[in-house]
Computed example of a mutant assay.
Amino acid sequence: MTPGGLSDSRPSKNERREVAREKAKQLRIDQKKKDRRNRVLLQGSIGVVAIAIVVIVAVVIMGSIRPAGPGPANMASDGILIGEGMTAVETTALQPDAAAQASEPDATGTVANIRVYVDYLCPFCGLFELTNGEQIQSWVESGAATVEIHPIAILTSKSAGSQYSLRAANAAACVASSAPNDFYAFNAALFTDQPEENTTGRSDAELKEVVAASGVTTNVSEIETCIDDTTYKTWVQEATERALSGPIANSELEKITGTPTVLVDGKQYVGALDDPNEFSAFVLQAVGESYSTSTPTPTPTPEATPAG
């Protein structure tokens, strides 16, 4: 025993310092291991999340982008041609990536070939239809004119995200394909109580109500499915692009720059959209000019020279 009391067994200051250093060293080692483990787990989690996002995006894209299918029947020209008795000219469906096939205009010069490019959200298209629709119908019914209607969608972004222009043009294509002789009535009905720009427009259910209200009775369930599936969405987009890029067949017009674009025997009408008399006068003038250029001028019969 050491004189003066019990022996002091506590570690010295240097020993405590050494223990602290060792403990700190071990803590640093443990922390580094923990950090490495966390990084591996984080990277793995990020990888899993990234893969999940890619899968979700791929599913959404594949669900929204369908392979391009044929266009609607009876619209090989990107429009539907309606003749005497309001009977539509039937054509086969335009195949994907195929060029539109221009309709053959009446060559006699006695029948007005009226062509109208419309967007169903365009208020000026509605004005033209409400002003001139009935008189055009009377001309076509009697055989004095044909009318070819081209639905396009240049105002798709003007319907608060609902793409009404595109969906309405698709609905028109559905009717043209499945009930062509009811197309003119459906086209007119789309302009009755027409939705305003920058509104959502009609829903698909409401478009189907227009089908019924306009008197379509042929292949109604087929048309409704076509509307629900936006079957002709790709065709509408391509037909719109063809109209905007041109050229416009059977006319001197390079391309469509707005709606409505109205052509009579290839000549563009630029008069008042709300004056049926002005449009009627334009049609008569266009037909007169077409008739004068399509009818050969009679050659005078030479008279016999008297015998000398």
Rank of each mutant, 00 (worst) to 15 (best):
T87Y: 03
T87P: 00
T87R: 12
V89Y: 05
E90G: 07
T91I: 01
T91K: 05
Q95P: 08
D97T: 06
A100S: 15
A102E: 10
S103P: 11
S103M: 05
A107G: 11
G109I: 01
A112D: 12
A112Q: 09
Y117T: 08
Y117Q: 08
Y117I: 05
D119G: 09
D119I: 09
Y120K: 10
L121K: 14
L121T: 12
C122V: 12
P123H: 10
F124C: 04
G126K: 02
F128K: 03
L130D: 15
T131I: 02
N132M: 03
I136F: 05
I136C: 08
Q137K: 11
Q137A: 10
S138A: 09
S138N: 14
W139S: 15
E141L: 00
E141G: 06
G143E: 08
V147E: 07
H150Q: 10
A153Y: 02
I154A: 09
I154G: 10
T156E: 12
T156F: 01
S157A: 11
K158S: 10
A160N: 15
G161R: 13
Q163Y: 11
S165W: 04
S165L: 01
L166Y: 07
L166N: 15
A169R: 02
N170M: 00
N170C: 01
N170Q: 09
V175C: 03
V175S: 06
